[in-house]
């Protein structure tokens, strides 16, 4: 955003782009379009996040818009900053928070926000407990987030329409004002489950229309979940044997049909359980006097997966506990 505008600062301008002020004139866009920062950001997003086509496409569009805006500015075509406030909806574990965390960095690299830090808050950080407590509290948070991204998780909690003494209304009003008037200073991202968010938008007229991007995070397919499992295992330096892989896929199929399936989060929890069982197996192996190789330490066998309670037709697996404790 800090690019000097030729119209104002002719002597410092963008070199060759100047002087071509008539409509058909040709500009060499390569230096802006082939900005290495952009490809780096988008490439990283592609590599590290599985699936989420819609999300990635939207980010690509935003990136393109910001780049083209820079080009346009070199012709002194002003457009003003676009609305980048977003709303992420989707089931648990579909990657809303992960993407939001990346958004700060992405928008910073694209030169849309100045600092690119992310301030992650929930209702407790915004809404006060007594009259006159809410405004300063919300104001503090907004100030902290300026120059970066304000991420409001479970945003539908902010305002409860059935409770008329709820102070959330004040927060919502301040948010609306900031989202409208200070678009160049702050990007607001709301996240929450689809149904809840829809109700929230119904209760707060004018909020939905101030959000430029409503992005829905779909549930993952089994293949995508496997891909996630691979990425996670790789991050933690584990390798599945072929049998273990099949077993894990089976596990996911079972788990997915059970209640409280939380997509990526379930995969992570399952993987953590598998790691524990693997650790126990390896530990017992060594106490029987076998020497351990590095291979033993990194390999996950089918047995480690198959011991899960999900296969026994039991409860929702031992993972239930870890889900609720989050």
């Amino acid at each position: 955003m800090a690019e000097p505008r030729p119209a104002e600062m002719p002597s410092l301008g963008t070199g060759m782009l100047q002087g071509h002020q008539n409509d058909d004139s040709f500009t060499d866009p390569s230096e802006i379009l082939e900005d290495p920062r952009l490809e780096e950001v988008l490439g990283k997003l592609d590599r590290e996040l599985v699936a989420l086509r819609g999300v990635k496409n939207r980010i690509r569009e935003i990136a393109a818009l910001l780049v083209i805006d820079r080009l346009r500015r070199s012709f002194a075509l002003e457009a003003g900053p676009p609305t980048l406030h977003m709303c992420f909806t989707g089931n648990p574990g579909t990657g809303k928070t992960t993407v939001a965390l990346r958004m700060g960095e992405i928008l910073h690299r694209l030169g849309y926000v100045r600092k690119g830090h992310l301030v992650s808050v929930t209702r407790d950080d915004l809404v006060g407990q007594y009259v006159g407590h809410t405004a300063p509290k919300t104001n503090e948070v907004l100030k902290r987030a300026m120059g970066g991204v304000l991420f409001i998780d479970e945003a539908y909690h902010i305002y409860r329409v059935d409770n008329e003494r709820d102070y959330g209304q004040e927060t919502v009003e301040m948010l609306l004002q900031v989202m409208e008037n200070r678009r160049e200073d702050i990007v607001v991202i709301l996240a929450g489950y689809k149904g809840h968010m829809d109700r929230f938008f119904n209760d707060v007229p004018g909020l939905s229309s101030r959000i430029g991007h409503h992005i829905d995070f779909p549930d993952y397919s089994i293949e995508e979940l496997m891909e996630i499992a691979h990425l996670m295992a790789e991050e933690r330096n584990y390798v599945f044997t072929e049998d273990a892989e099949k077993a894990f896929e089976d596990y996911l199929r079972h788990r997915k049909s059970q209640p409280r399936f939380a997509n990526g989060r379930s995969v992570r929890n399952a993987l953590d359980r598998v790691r524990m069982r693997q650790a126990l197996r390896v530990y017992e192996m060594s106490s029987k006097g076998r020497n351990l190789t590095k291979n033993d330490l990194v390999t996950i066998h089918a047995d480690d997966v198959l011991k899960s309670r999900v296969f026994g037709g039991g409860a929702y697996d031992d993972e239930e506990r870890s889900v609720t404790s989050r």
Binding site: K143, R144, R182
Partner: peptide
Amino acid sequence: WGMPMFDIVDAAAALHE
């Protein structure tokens, strides 16, 4: 005028105040 701003990252917030 309000509290000292210890945790802001960007000058826009202070200028706003």
